[in-house]
Design a protein around this nucleic acid. Structure first.
Length: 721
DNA sequence: GTAGGGTTAG
């Protein structure tokens, strides 16, 4: 029987007293296929007795009995064992060798392999490394184990020691061990060390390359990865399915000088050429790359071309739609998955994306249905799902429901807190958001990079300038979070909105890194609110250079010129927009009634339905003119048109049409919930305030930035947005 | 021996 060759015995010099006792049992290690056995004390003493009397046959019988008796022998978890003595032998009587922890290592010929392994498993890594130093011929298995334990123990210094010893013994040139070393250094958080191992490895198998690629991809060093990928191709080592996934990932994480999307397409071509177009991992990664670059149609063609799909590929495609402002498509695909791909059961990742899509659409009823499904599937205990639900309820205008999800959580991470902070922020409850932020810290959770974006954003929506400045100052000094581009953008927004444009400009000037488009965008947005032409020109000059294809920036500048009645400037900005072949994003508002979505676009349409809505609006606005002396804000229409025509354009704004539609198609007393893809226009804001009072209706509008709750002629934003 | 999709902001 195989077990006999793995007999474990204590040498003649070991006394039972030197064993570690635990209750009535002695724990010792037996290396039978790496399983550990727990010996009963009496039985152990019996073994010892047989041994000391030389009754080898009896001993043999005993061991066999032990290994076959589940009552006596039972497996114990690796961590709980106490390592003691171990030796394997085929020649039983002659090899009763004692290897207790105090035993002296034997010099040379690989005799210490077992001892090193034993010490590793017993948790004495330092001593294992020391024994390795005295062992000129350690086996590959022993070295691998040592490397493994260095990573396990999260000890970089031990890892470096082992590495040094392998270099001394020339073993670092073994491609297998080099791979393990690279992986170890990656897991220990030192990719630089991993690179060094790679540089020093002469024989680079595909495993060696892949190990380094994995490390580089995971820490976002995509540019280096792709350079090396090029080198690999020229050295004649063939890529495998892992190489392709890492190279693809690199395109997403790299800050390449060349177009990363093109690089991705190039790798796509390699994949096809080498026949990996049916590999589910490679193709799912490729799909994700296209998704991250916003190439929805490419992603979709990869997806539909996949011969085999599983729930990951379905989820990746759903995520692609959810993240690229196509939430309807995301939901449609989800239904399709449920109906067509019965073997692909959605998991928590799928549901996170579906919940996100519901939030984007502000589809509250659908969101509740999805929430019910999540509960039924038992996926609600998963943190990202909960966080997504909190945000979804918030984005549907239901802070209380979001708060309830949060309150029912047993454990919360920083993301759950951030989600809660953000929903209060987007509803304009700045003080409450700060209070939650402070609560979080009080509970011992350190604020993250994003915590500060959310809380600063909340201050900005609520006009809490001093509070925001205080938080911004404290983020680095107190919480050691280094302010990034987004935080500067928040500060510029906070100060700019509050008409402290000089201070906002000073924040930009004090930045250590080059201000990016988000920062200038915030400034331009503030210039729009406060009609500052001069600063707007500075900001837009930068923006046109940094993101020449963002039509929104041109439109903002044109708006500012129009407000200042600088019509020739308006014209030239529009020409610039046209010359760059860009189009203004049309305003779109929608309303969900009985789980159906009705959307309206601000274009001049003459359908009968729209005419009915216009008629209602004209009636309301006439009333408003009489009661409140309302004057349409025609100056925000920057077409060179007559007043009457401008008024007609204003009347056709998508949010007004949606409000009118809501008035007609919902019950009295029901809240009208509208969502808009852009910022709410000033005229619509004024009109909606009036309608809320005149029609005695609560109207909840979510625009691209925040919520407006109109009640009795007043908006929750306090006209500050 | 290594692998694919995820939560929070503006």
């Amino acid at each position: 029987m195989e077990c006999l060759y793995l007999l474990i015995i204590v040498g003649p010099d070991s006394r039972p007293g030197s064993l570690r006792l635990s209750g009535s049992s002695i724990v010792m290690e037996v290396s039978v296929s790496h399983k550990l056995l727990l010996f009963n004390l009496e039985f152990f003493l019996l073994l010892l007795l047989y041994h000391s009397f030389g009754y080898i046959c009896a001993l043999r019988y005993c061991v066999m009995w032990v290994l076959q008796s589940p009552q006596i022998v039972r497996q114990v978890p690796l961590q709980s064992h106490l390592c003691y003595t171990c030796h394997a032998s085929s020649r039983l009587p002659a090899s009763f060798v004692s290897l207790n922890p105090s035993a002296k290592p034997v010099k040379g010929d690989g005799a210490n392999n077992q001892l090193i392994q034993s010490l590793c498993r017993g948790g004495d890594l330092k001593q294992a490394i020391q024994v390795l130093g005295n062992e000129p011929n350690p086996s590959q298995q022993t070295c691998e184990l040592l490397i493994y334990y260095c990573a396990q123990k999260n000890s970089l210094s031990d890892g470096i020691d082992v590495h040094r010893q392998l270099v001394d013994g020339g073993l670092d040139q073994d491609p297998f061990l080099a791979t393990k070393l690279i992986n170890m250094y990656y897991e220990l958080g030192s990719v630089d060390h991993a690179c060094k191992v790679f540089d020093e490895t002469r024989e680079r198998t595909v495993y060696v390359w892949n190990a380094l690629f994995r490390a580089l991809a995971m820490v976002g060093r995509g540019k280096e990865l792709l350079d090396l990928y090029g080198q690999m191709n020229s050295t004649g080592v063939s890529s495998d399915r892992f190489t392709y996934t890492y190279a693809l990932k690199a395109c997403v994480v790299s800050e390449l000088s060349v177009c990363p999307l093109r690089k991705g397409m190039e790798i796509h071509a390699h994949i096809l050429r080498h026949g990996y177009e049916a590999n589910i991992h490679v193709m799912t990664t490729l799909l994700d790359v296209y998704a991250k670059f916003g190439r929805v149609s490419y992603a979709n063609s990869v997806f539909s071309g996949m011969p085999v799909k599983n729930f990951v590929s379905w989820s990746a495609m759903i995520a692609c739609y959810a993240k690229n402002e196509m939430p309807m498509k995301a939901l449609e695909l989800f239904w399709q998955m449920m109906l067509e791909a019965r073997e692909s059961v959605p998991n928590s990742v799928t549901m996170v994306n579906v919940v996100q899509a519901c939030g984007a659409l502000a589809a509250l009823e659908l969101g509740k249905l999805i929430h019910a499904y999540i509960l039924r599937r038992g996926l609600d205990s998963i943190l990202p799902v909960r966080s997504a639900l909190i945000t979804m309820y918030g984005r549907c205008g239901e802070i209380e429901l979001g708060q309830r999800v949060f309150d029912n959580m047993n454990n919360r991470d920083v993301v759950s807190w951030n989600s809660l902070i953000s929903i209060y922020g987007m509803h304009g409850f700045g003080k409450k958001a700060i209070q939650i932020f402070e609560n979080m810290i009080h509970q011992g959770i350190s604020p993250s990079y994003i915590s500060f974006i959310t809380v600063l954003g909340a201050c900005s929506h609520a006009g809490l300038v001093e509070e925001g400045k205080f938080l911004f100052k404290s983020m680095h000094s107190r919480y050691r979070v280094h302010p990034g581009m987004e935080h500067y953008a928040c500060m510029v927004d906070l100060l700019g909105r509050a008409n402290r444009l000089d201070e906002a400009m000073k924040v930009i000037q004090d930045m250590r890194s080059e201000p990016g488009p988000t920062v200038w965008g915030s400034l331009l947005g503030s210039c729009r609110i406060h009609c500052n032409v001069e600063l707007a020109e500075t900001a837009s000059t930068m923006l046109f250079e940094l993101e020449p294809n963002n039509a929104g920036n041109y439109v903002l500048l044109a708006d500012i010129y129009a407000e200042a009645k600088m019509w020739s400037h308006v014209k030239s900005v529009k020409k610039l927009l046209e010359s760059r072949d860009l189009q203004k994003i049309p305003g779109c508002s929608w309303i969900v009634i009985k789980r159906k979505i009705y959307s309206f676009v601000s274009v001049d349409e003459n359908s009968i339905e729209i005419e009915a809505l216009r008629a209602l609006l004209i009636k309301l606005l006439t009333e408003m003119k009489e009661q409140q002396g309302y004057v349409p804000l025609t100056n925000i229409v920057h077409y060179d048109l007559g007043e009457e025509e401008k008024e007609r354009i204003l009347l056709g704004h998508s949010e007004k049409l949606a409000v009118a539609f809501g008035l007609i198609n919902t019950e009295k007393g029901e809240i009208i919930r509208i969502t808009k893809n852009l910022r709410l226009c000033e005229d619509c804001h004024t009109v909606t305030k009036f309608i809320s009072k005149f029609a005695n209706r609560e109207i909840l509008v979510r625009d691209v930035n925040r919520f407006h709750r109109f009640r009795d002629g007043v908006c929750s934003c306090g006209d500050y947005w």
